[in-house]
């Protein structure tokens, strides 16, 4: 009963958010539309973080690495190949996937806090490379003057912030839909099963590292595509867009959103990024201080939203599992009785 209510409320909220997002460009000014487009791109990175952290059970602080790879591949390579958005998206997603595939041997054998450490190191190293490889990335000055894209062959160039925002929205909606479909397949089921009880899944002959590698590469491709969207939304990129604070903010957003929920991750990440942008607008000097305090407060307020990480779940089981088991057959026994009487 309660689940039913929650599901309906969630559906209503999702519909409202979606409707709001569609009408948003006509309701706000150009600057806000550009900020919204960037927030959507970051929300998509948040989805990839949720895919790894919540669904696959590999808490990550390094999704900015494929995100940055995608953005720079799109800005440096994609804009040379074609001005069609779909092609640039493919290039960016490919770059993100390749970077993720290269780091698979580092990340996949590790678990728990070690994953956090290794992914953070990878993310920071990528930012360092971006800052120093001046001839290609423009160093810490970043890349400006990126030529505008057309979404598809034959369509006009995205000339204003509204058009760029709508393009971002369509791509994000499509990719989130694809992730939701992917999670309904056998692959999604195996990922969740591996998160909840890896030993049992391994014992029954499943190749858990293979699933995790697949999830890591898929998450890399999604983050890479988000990088292409950032290039479209901002038309300027620099290593500062991919710093370690961005990873931490996204992880917090994903935790607020419920860790394993893709929609929750999108909303949570967008919320956290919006709060950050707003704080930096109203409190130019002390924004990090307030943001840090909010971080601590959020962690205290939401301690239970984060139990679905590999390893932590096991501890939670014993209190809940034993009472439910004797109940289950009993309920099944009772069920036919009213039918017999009727």
């Amino acid at each position: 009963m309660r689940d039913e209510v929650i599901r309906r409320v969630r559906g209503a909220v999702a519909a409202l958010v979606l409707a709001g997002l569609v009408v948003a460009p006509w309701a706000v000014d150009d600057y806000t539309a550009a900020i919204l487009a960037r927030t959507l791109a970051l929300g998509l990175v948040g989805v990839s973080v949720a895919l790894l952290t919540g669904v696959a059970g590999m808490p990550t602080l390094g999704q900015t690495a494929p995100y940055a790879a995608g953005a720079y591949a799109c800005a440096v390579l994609g804009s040379q190949i074609s001005d069609v958005g779909v092609v640039q998206l493919a290039v960016a997603a490919g770059a993100g996937a390749v970077l993720a595939a290269l780091t698979v041997p580092l990340v996949v054998p590790a678990r728990g806090v070690i994953v956090l450490m290794i992914t953070l190191a990878i993310g920071e190293l990528v930012v360092t490379v971006l800052g120093r490889w001046r001839s290609v990335t423009g160093g810490t000055d970043g890349l400006a003057g990126i030529s505008p894209v057309r979404p598809f062959w034959g369509l006009p160039v995205l000339a204003n912030d509204q058009a760029r925002y709508l393009y971002t929205l369509v791509v994000v909606a499509t990719l989130v839909g694809a992730v939701l479909l992917l999670l309904r397949t056998r692959f999604g089921l195996l990922l969740r099963a591996g998160r909840d009880d890896e030993t049992r899944l391994r014992a029954s002959g499943h190749r858990v590292p293979l699933h995790l590698s697949g999830a890591h590469i898929a998450a890399g491709a999604i983050a890479g595509a988000a990088g292409s969207l950032l290039v479209v939304a901002q038309q300027y990129i620099s290593p500062a867009d991919f710093g370690f604070d961005t990873s931490a903010l996204l992880l917090l957003g994903v935790v607020i959103g419920g860790t394993a929920s893709v929609g929750g991750a999108l909303v949570g990440a967008a919320l956290v990024i919006a709060v950050r942008d707003w704080l930096f607008g109203v409190l130019p000097g002390h924004a990090p201080l307030v943001l840090g305090a909010l971080f601590v407060a959020t962690v205290y307020l939401l301690p239970t939203g984060v139990n679905r990480v590999r390893g932590a779940r096991v501890r939670l089981r014993p209190p809940t599992a034993p009472p439910s088991r004797p109940d289950a057959p009993a309920a099944r026994d009772h069920a036919p009785v009213p039918e017999l009487h009727a």
């Binding site: 952290t53 808490p59 602080l61 728990g112 806090v113 956090l116 604070d245 931490a248 992880l251 917090l252 935790v255 943001l291 840090g292 305090a293 909010l294 971080f295 601590v296 959020t298 962690v299 301690p303 984060v306 990480v309």
Partner: peptide
């Protein structure tokens, strides 16, 4: 460790 890492980041 996820909450703990986020707390230390704050």
């Amino acid at each position: 460790h996820l909450t703990q890492a986020l707390l230390t980041f704050g």
